[in-house]
Amino acid sequence: MWRFARPVAVKGWGRAVIELQNVAMSYGGRELLSEMTLRLMPGSFHFLTGPSGAGKTTFLKLCYAELSPSSGMLSLFDRDVRMMTRDDVAAMRQRIGVVHQDCQFLDHLSVAENIALPLSVSRRAADPKELRELLSWVGLRAQADALPPQLSGGERQRAALARAVMMSPDIILADEPTGNLDWEMSQRLLNLLIELNRMGKTVLIATHDLNLIRTAKSQVATRVLRIANQRLQLAGADL
């Protein structure tokens, strides 16, 4: 199994890595999210559920500062996002691995180059051995030199997850990461996320897949959050 070569120093243990206080989010005058209050502690593992259109993706976008809250206070790594410059946001994103639902890539670069992109933008060279191991682990070794448009939906999601964890980030945010994967591959990716969590990473996964949640709960302490009626709730223990 692929492992991070470098030891991970968990920074700011005891302080929330993501904190929302009474956050609201509006689009075109319509309030999508309101009265959101949450503290995600380092090393925690959370699932985010809710009906389609409830605002899960919007919530995740708030968590990596692609969107700014309409009101309330949002802090990432103990810093208020309203006080962050664009360079601060970029530096903060190097500590957050994001897996999008639509998995966007640079289509003119190979899969391997796309996975190593977070290192490239921070002017660091990828360790070829580490990159090969990561590609093997997500089952994309044979597609390393392929271009992203040549990948299937499931392969794209695996490549997106590999890119998200390439920098050994402190937080991993994943939006339906197993949506296009078969059960076996979903299990492998979940195991990777669980392993990362055991190394001290904070994991937040937005998903509809209750089986995935149940499998994770059997292996690691998780909390399940639910967005309903624009508000964030702690889901019941019956999942």
Partner: peptide, 16 residues
């Protein structure tokens, strides 16, 4: 536009 969005997502600064 997509290239720029992906680069920002993985932490690229504007200068880069």
């Amino acid at each position: 536009g997509q290239v720029i969005r992906v680069l920002r997502l993985v932490g690229a600064r504007d200068q880069f």
